[in-house]
Amino acid sequence: MWKDFVRGLWADNPTFRLNIGLCPVLAVTVSALNGLSMGLATTLVLICSSALISLLKNLIPAKVRIPAFIIVIATFVTIVDLVMHAYLPDLHSVLGLFIPLIVVNCIVLGRAEAFAAKHSVLRSAVDGIGMGLGFTWALTLLGAIRELLGSGSLFGMALLPEGATTLGIMSLPPGAFITLGLLMAMMNMITARQKKTAS
């Protein structure tokens, strides 16, 4: 069970290891808070849909598995979308299009197919939490770096003195791509070093 949880955090981290679900990683990470919220919204959908799909796995005929999964996922996504729109309107307008797009986030469908359809409800939910949090910390880290360099603040609090030069490019699309590329290289370096010390 513990393994199911930690796998998503590091060894099979969806962003840095599996390289899936990358669109929101790049698009919403202009600030740390946006990254965190998007990550948590995805985590919520992931836990609910994984648990429910695991519960229904014996009822759904194999041939219509994928459409059934999509309906379940789309339902949870729409619920999250509507609830956010009602209670967190500012956040909803920032994340905008990328909330409904959680439906096609490969992490959600991928975990449903690869894990939830084969394991118990509890293990599927735990796997969902692990994967979701793995996704969340990646988004938050990227968001924090871009926010700090791009607008000189962190979680909305100004950290750099007034008038300090910021790298505006970090808030724009190219900054997202380049920062993620460098972060991936860093993850590879850390993993390579871990392997070296282990052997």
């Binding site: 619920i79 509507l82 729109h85």
Partner: peptide, 29 residues
């Protein structure tokens, strides 16, 4: 037949839940 029935049930349950959620949230929105 089973495939159709299962999909239809899932679809209907989903639409039902969503219309309830929409009903409550749309007012606030």
């Amino acid at each position: 037949l089973r495939m159709v029935v299962v999909l239809a049930i899932i679809g209907m349950v989903s639409a039902g839940i969503l219309s309830v959620v929409y009903g409550t949230t749309s007012v606030i929105i």
